[in-house]
Amino acid sequence: MTATGLIARKEAGDLLLSLRGLGWLLTMAVVLSVFGLLLVGNTELSLLDNAQVVYDMGGIVTALGALLAVVVGTDAVAGERERGTLVSLLLTPASRNSILLGKLGGQAIAWAVMYAIALPYFWAVGSTGQNLVDGAVSVALLGTPVVLGFGFLAMGLGARLDSARSSLLPGLIVLLLSASPLLLGPSLRQSAIGRAFDAVNPFSGALNAYDAVIIDSQSIAAQVPHFAVTFVWLALTLWFAARGFSRVSR
């Protein structure tokens, strides 16, 4: 196995075999469970349109995935540095790029695990309608660049800042700002600033695509502008992570 594969497997182990990683996944699952139980237990929510339910689930899974990515990304660089494990990796014959790619692979595995956990929830709330597959595919295609981008951002911050705490905070702030379309009402989003923010915000890109595909029954192939926003975000954060990681010295 290559160094990249070894490190990606190790990162997956950090998530799936350590109590810390399993605790994060459990937290994510509990949030999804609370949403599912609200749907069956709350009269108003239970009257939501099926497409709306799948759309909401897509948004929540993307937001939780991005949150997990920020935590995992921070831990992969800043956390490892604080625990004193990063320098041992840097001093192996594996190149910086291999180590970085392995850690990026770890991010992808973390998101895949999170997505796999989310699939039963999608099925549970969306199987009575016809939007289930569209919803799951949209989240896979458009949520992936958004989520991985947040992980790469956190890795870049972790490489530049001194501690895990100081790099986690800006990562969470960017996530909160980007995920604001989930929190803001439609009127705020329709203002000039709201529209401009929507145009460049990867999170909005993904949500608008979910809206178009799940609620308005448009085809996924027609979401090119939204794909563009999310993949530009992914490319920028990848560059940010790579630049930061090349300077890590301890």
Binding site: L6, G13, L19, G84, T85, S88, L89, T92, P93
Partner: peptide
Amino acid sequence: HAKLGVLPEQNGFYDWMTAEDYLGFFAALY
């Protein structure tokens, strides 16, 4: 790095691994 061994002062470990897994992981990286 291929012929260098370093034990840093703050030397951390992957606590979820066994000692054999840990050495095996680094052996593979080398």
